Simulated assay, not measured.
Amino acid sequence: MKKLKGENFFKNITGEEVFLTFTVSDYEFENKEVEDIIIQLNDNDYQTEYLEWMKSWAD
Rank of each mutant, 00 (worst) to 15 (best):
T14A: 14
K3Q: 10
E33G: 00
E33V: 03
S25I: 12
I37T: 15
F9E: 12
T23A: 15
Q40F: 04
E35C: 00
N42S: 04
L4W: 06
K5G: 06
K32S: 15
F22I: 03
W57Y: 13
D45M: 05
I37F: 10
E17F: 01
M54E: 11
T23Y: 15
T23Q: 14
W53S: 12
I13M: 13
K2A: 10
Q47C: 08
E33F: 03
M1D: 05
D43G: 12
N8R: 10
I37H: 12
N42W: 05
L51R: 01
N31L: 08
E35A: 06
W53H: 09
L51H: 02
D26M: 09
I38F: 00
N8K: 08
E35N: 05
A58F: 15
I13K: 13
F9N: 07
N31Q: 09
M54Q: 15
E28W: 07
T23K: 14
T14H: 09
E49T: 11
W57T: 09
V34I: 14
L51I: 09
E16G: 07
N44C: 00
K11R: 09
E35H: 00
I39N: 12
M1T: 03
M54G: 11
I39Y: 05
F22D: 09
N44I: 00
T23F: 14
E49W: 01
K11N: 06
T21H: 04
T48M: 07
E16L: 07
S25V: 08
D36R: 11
K32A: 15
V34F: 05
D45Y: 12
K2F: 11
E16F: 03
N31H: 08
L51C: 08
K11M: 07
Y46E: 08
K11L: 04
E16I: 06
E7C: 06
L4K: 02
M54A: 11
K55M: 09
V24E: 08
V18L: 06
T21Q: 04
I37R: 09
G6D: 13
E7H: 11
D43N: 13
V24W: 02
T23N: 15
D36E: 14
I13H: 09
T48W: 03
Y46N: 06
I39K: 13
T48P: 01
F22P: 00
I37G: 01
V34R: 10
Y27T: 00
T48H: 07
K11H: 07
W53Y: 13
E35K: 03
G15M: 04
N8C: 02
V24M: 05
G6N: 13
I37V: 11
G6I: 03
E35P: 00
G6P: 05
I13L: 15
M54P: 10
F9I: 13
E52F: 01
Y50H: 11
W53F: 11
N44V: 06
D36A: 13
E28D: 15
Y46T: 04
T23I: 15
I37M: 07
D26L: 06
F19R: 02
W53T: 11
G6V: 04
E52M: 11
K55A: 09
D45S: 10
T48N: 14
E17Y: 07
E35Q: 02
T14Q: 09
F22G: 02
